[in-house]
Design a protein around this nucleic acid. Structure first.
Lengths: 219, 219
DNA sequence: AACTTTTTTTAGTTTCGGCTAAACCTTGTA
DNA sequence: TACAAGGTTTAGCCGAAACTAAAAAAAGTT
């Protein structure tokens, strides 16, 4: 199945939304994600339905099909490989990569992606800690949980963030948290859920529950 | 001036055609280069004219303006930097890069190109030996001439090819000629203009005038 | 159950970049 | 100079992907 540039973007958004909630995805959900009007989304859903990459029941949202999942994962794979390239080779920072990777992910060349993967040393995770699907769409996710679910004295390694908005990433950079940092919970404030953590055994850092819930660690 | 993807392609083609002949470029010329119908070209020329990147006089072809030249050179710069990346880092061969670079060249990010340039070590020439314009569109071309204009016993270094079709590049690869190879003219056949050359002081190679005229050397 | 609000779809436009068919210039030749 | 041939433009159409406005369906509320 060959998708246009726009269709590819919609499908990726639908896939990601359906991963979040494990439920059907509504027209409005997609509209919000894609920053297009609901009317435009309806049209696109009809088209994607006709192409068989989603199941579309009018007024009841969509479910992605197996074929659609495969295709979306291909796009995600490309996106994340380019992110690794931008950060590791071209010295982009976390918060600069998404926009550029979003354009690069649509370049159509199987060979290009194979060679890029090889060149980068077959990375398994992107700079935000998200797993990179293999050529066949298989993903090996690591078990991860948000910092606010750790107990005092528990340790972990930061592997991903939920909210990867540029603003949040810049904040993390500023306070010295980064993917790969080893942390330990020093204290949890019952009242508001805020936590104090130790980063890399040297720097202590205080964060609100909201921030803590956005940072995922692997133990 | 912001150009669409298609406009960028047309402008680049017009620039390259006008470099070849040093004359005005006709609608049919562009049509041939872009593989679109002349009617579509007329339309596009009108639009590019309105945007001020070319001077368009109906029925008399186009001349590129200074602004247009700048923009076209930006695109060419991106294309050639990506070609270097594909060949040097991802181990693509000459004849595979053009199509992929053609897609990559449209990715819009000033930072990306700056960083790529830096990462590649500020290359001055692409894998076909064509010069890479700098950020401001300045090109330092080297004086070069086709092999068939060399005399017997003259030497040179292959720096570029005129016809960079995949077929021709594969042919060169096969016979062992490559960008950077040092050559010496062993013999010229008056009758048909064919030549025999020595490659890298070890391999003798016989080529027709047509082939010789397509290979450019620097002395 | 009826009505209001929200969500979603349909219908009709717009812009972009292609196309064909037909009209229109320019040019070369008799 | 007249006219044929070839190159170029215009007019009109199409598909993609966005939009707005209005209609329709679903969900929530009294």
């Amino acid at each position: 199945m060959i998708l246009t540039y726009a269709e590819e973007n919609y499908l990726k958004a639908i896939f990601q939304l359906s991963e979040e909630g494990k439920k059907g995805v509504s027209t409005n959900d997609v509209s919000g994600e894609m920053k297009t009007k609901p009317a435009s989304v309806s049209d696109m859903l009809r088209k994607l339905g006709e192409k068989g990459v989603i199941e579309y029941r009018k007024y009841y949202g969509v479910h992605i099909t197996e074929e659609g999942k495969k295709l979306a994962l291909q796009t995600i794979r490309k996106h994340r490989l380019w992110e690794v390239f931008l950060v590791e080779k071209l010295k982009f920072s976390w918060d600069e990569v998404d926009e550029v990777a979003h354009e690069l992910e649509h370049v159509k060349s199987r060979l290009l992606i194979q060679r890029l993967d090889e060149y980068l040393g077959y990375p398994k995770f992107d700079p935000h800690g998200d797993p990179i699907p293999d050529e066949y769409g298989d993903v090996r996710a690591r078990p991860r949980l948000p910092i606010n679910e750790l107990q005092v004295n528990e340790t972990g390694q930061i592997v991903a963030v939920k909210d990867s908005s540029a603003a949040f990433l810049r904040y993390l950079d500023k306070v010295g948290a980064y993917i790969g940092a080893r942390i330990k919970i020093l204290e949890k404030v019952e009242f508001d859920g805020s936590v104090e953590i130790l980063v890399d055994n040297k720097k202590s850092l205080f964060m609100s529950k909201e921030v803590a819930a956005n940072i995922l660690v692997m133990q």
